[in-house]
Write a protein that binds this DNA or RNA. Structure first.
Lengths: 229, 229
DNA sequence: GTCAAACGTTTTGTATACAAGAATTCGATT
DNA sequence: AATCGAATTCTTGTATACAAAACGTTTGAC
C-alpha cells in the first residue's frame, strides 16, 4: 500500500487494463472510477497521466482517457524491439559481466530447469523473469537495463500467451544454456544471436502468438486501428 | 499554443530544464511557478507528471519535484543505447526501406552537405535531424521509430555539445554517405556498423563531450549522484 | 555546545467548486 | 424518413479550499 492514492489507483487500473477488463478504445469514466476507488477525480487524473506515459491509455484533450490495446502488428513490432534490446544486453554482458552476476545467472538457469522438470510453471515463470532481469543488469549499462525492463514489463501480458506449448519450453531451456555458455566464454556474437532468436517472435512462435492474441481480451479494435493512420 | 494549460506549462518547463535554468536536484516550487505561469497548481502538477515520465524531473512523494540532470556516465550510457537503436534501425532499413524514402534520404544527405559547405550550421543541424528521423522511419518498425525518436529528443541538449569541431562535421558527412550507400545496396551489416559508430561516443568524441559537459549547465550534482546508489 | 522536543510554518496531496467545451436529445424542416 | 440545429446534459480542465505530512526554528535539558 502506497502513501499516495494516485499511485494505488494507477496500479489498480494498470492491473485491470492488462487483464483485459476494458475493451480497446473504451473510455475510462472519471466519475465512475472515482466512486469505485473512493477517491476524487484529482488522484484519478494523475493516474491517467502515468498510464498514458506507459502507453496503456491515450489521453485525448477535452475527450478523456481511452484504453489502448496494441494491434497484432504493433505487438510484433514491440517484440522485435525487445529482441534487439536483449541482443544488445547479451553482447555487452558477454564482455562486461562480473563473476558474481555470472554465478547468479548460472544458478537461475539451473533453477529454471528444475522448475520446468518439476512441472512448476509458476516457479519456471519466476526464474525465467529473473534470468532476463540478470541479463539486463549484466550489460553494465544501467540505462539500457532500465529501458529493457520497462519494455519487458509492458510485454508481460503478451508474453504469457507464448511459451505455453511444451516443446517451446524445452527449446527455451536449451537457449538459456547456450546463452550461459556464451557469457562464460565471453562470446559476445553468440550471446547476441541466441538472445535475439530467444526473444524474437518467428517461425512457429508467430502462429502460436497470433492464435492466442485472437482469443485474448487484449485485442485492438480494428475500426480504431484503421483510424490511427 | 495548446488548448490545455498543462501542456503549455510542460513545454515551457521542459525548455527551461534543458537549457539549464535549474541546477541538478533543485526543487520546482509549485506556488512560485504557478504564479509565474499564471495558472493554478493543478495544471502545474500535471506538467510535473509528464516531465517525470520523460525523466527530466524526479517526483519524490510528499517532498516535491526535483530536476534531474544525468551524470556524465549516465549520459554516456544513453548515447550507447542510442547508438545501438540507430544501428538496429539501419540494419532493418537496409532491408526494408521503400524507394521513395530512400530518395528522401539521398536528398537529405545532399542538403546536409550543401549546408555544411555553406557554413549554414542551423541548416546543417536541421537536415541532420531529418536524416536520422528518416532512418528511424525507414526501419519499417513504427514502435522502434517512436522509441528512437524519444531517446533522440532526450539527448538533443547533449548532442549540441558534440559536433562543434570542424573535423567532426566532415567525418559525419562521410558517414552519411556510407550509410546512404549501404541502404542503396541493401548492405545491412555496413548500415548497422556505420550508424553505430556514427552515433557512439568514442575516441576523440568522448573527450570533446566530456569537456563540453563540464562547462555546461546540465551537470549533475556529484553529491546527489553518490546518493543514487 | 550539542542534542532533542515542541511549536509554528510551509508544502504536498486530495476534495470540491465552477466554467468552458463536447456530446446528446429532441424538435423542426425538407 | 433523414438531416440539421438549438437546447440540455455530461464531461473535462482549472481554480480553490483544506487536511496531513515535512520542514525549520525556537526552546529547553544535559
Amino acid at each position: 500500500m502506497n502513501t499516495r492514492m494516485a499511485d494505488n489507483v494507477r496500479e489498480a487500473l494498470e492491473q485491470m487494463i492488462v487483464t483485459g477488463e476494458f475493451a480497446d478504445g473504451e473510455r475510462l469514466d472519471e466519475i465512475r472510477l472515482a466512486e469505485r476507488f473512493h477517491v476524487s477525480r484529482t488522484p484519478l487524473r494523475e493516474a491517467f497521466q502515468m498510464l498514458a506515459a506507459s502507453g496503456l491509455v491515450e489521453l485525448v484533450p477535452r475527450r478523456g482517457a481511452f484504453v489502448r490495446h496494441p494491434a497484432f502488428h504493433e505487438m510484433i513490432e514491440m517484440f522485435e524491439v525487445m529482441a534487439e534490446l536483449e541482443a544488445v544486453c547479451g553482447r555487452l554482458a558477454a564482455r562486461r559481466i562480473p563473476p558474481d552476476v555470472l554465478e547468479q545467472v548460472r544458478a537461475t538457469v539451473i533453477a529454471c530447469e528444475a522448475a520446468a522438470h518439476a512441472g512448476d510453471s509458476d516457479g519456471y515463470y519466476r526464474e525465467n523473469e529473473h534470468f532476463h532481469q540478470l541479463i539486463y543488469t549484466a550489460s553494465g549499462n544501467d540505462f539500457l537495463a532500465q529501458e529493457s525492463q520497462r519494455l519487458h514489463k509492458r510485454l508481460q501480458p503478451f508474453r504469457r500467451m507464448q511459451l505455453r506449448v511444451r516443446g517451446r519450453m524445452i527449446q527455451s531451456l536449451t537457449e538459456h544454456r547456450q546463452i550461459l555458455t556464451a557469457l562464460e566464454t565471453g562470446d559476445s556474437e553468440t550471446a547476441e544471436a541466441v538472445l535475439r532468436d530467444h526473444v524474437a517472435v518467428q517461425g512457429g512462435k508467430f502462429n502460436d502468438l497470433m492464435a492466442s492474441y485472437k482469443q485474448s481480451n487484449l485485442r485492438a479494435n480494428p475500426q480504431l486501428v484503421a483510424m490511427r493512420g
